[in-house]
Nucleic acid binder design. Sequence first.
DNA 1: TAGGTTGACTTGAAGGTTCAAGTGATGAGC
DNA 2: GCTCATCACTTGAACCTTCAAGTCAACCTA
Lengths: 163, 163
Amino acid sequence: MPRRTKTTRWLNAEEEAAWRAIAFVMHRLTWALECQLERDADLSYIEYHTLVRLSEEPNHTLRMSELAIVTNQSLSRLSHLAKRLETRGLLRRETDASDGRFTNAILTDEGYARLVASAPAHVEAVRALVIDAFSTAELRQLRDASERILARIDGQTGTPAAT
Amino acid sequence: MPRRTKTTRWLNAEEEAAWRAIAFVMHRLTWALECQLERDADLSYIEYHTLVRLSEEPNHTLRMSELAIVTNQSLSRLSHLAKRLETRGLLRRETDASDGRFTNAILTDEGYARLVASAPAHVEAVRALVIDAFSTAELRQLRDASERILARIDGQTGTPAAT
DNA sequence: TAGGTTGACTTGAAGGTTCAAGTGATGAGC
DNA sequence: GCTCATCACTTGAACCTTCAAGTCAACCTA
């Protein structure tokens, strides 16, 4: 892929320090929440969020393919994950009655109970580490910043013509 | 772990929206950079950063245990990683001459060349997705926000007495 | 209604990460 | 100087994720 300029615009000291802090916090925060969930709910982050998204659906039910989309994972990964959650009794799967190609993932009562039991601790952690560290205005700014980055990621996906 | 209050302080709509955006961008940004590196350098993020940290040392050399610390990975993980990088010719290991217990990880010339060749594209990506999206002042704020979160993570590590 | 295509998963193998146990070099105590 | 503890890794097994290939239902088309 040819570039317009030959010389790279390296990061200056300010920019580099900012980037290191951002990259580092992403890593550590992800890890901290992962640990908290593992400890308090015996669930990984992806497991927790898969169950959470299910719990937000009417009847605690969603098609595998849609669940994969809303939880940002490949269908294959979800399929393996569902199998494990199924053996743990937190989720079950049923072929859709009206169309045999679809599979519905359904949160079991036990899965829901697990979620109800562990949600407070998770919310507390999110509060303690992030939310409570900022004012309403600051949170708003962080959200804006996040969305600005997201727009850039989405904007450049695969298309080098973007700019 | 008993809590002071029985009722959970759930997130309000603003807080929830902010948190979802932050959590989502962490996930997507990590993934976007991972893809960029895989594509342009045939290296995973952890591989790239392991080599980068080595390249910043005098003689491109660092003890395995110290390299593990600065790259935020377990010694075990680094050991496996080093073995793979070694077979790819990007890194080599030598027992320390003065103390046989230490192992030095050394960036090979080929490894350094790979880094030199791929750094521009990576910096460009970081610029395009993050740095260039913000003013100097905004970057400063983002850095502050990151460090505030980091302080909270470090503060509560394991010690429930913290507050 | 047989044959091919598409969509929606599922499966198996390969590779990476983690955890616990193993190895080998030093240094301390007797 | 022999034994034991410690340090700094390394290794193996179990588990998770990814990728490519496989299965199976429904639809389409002649």
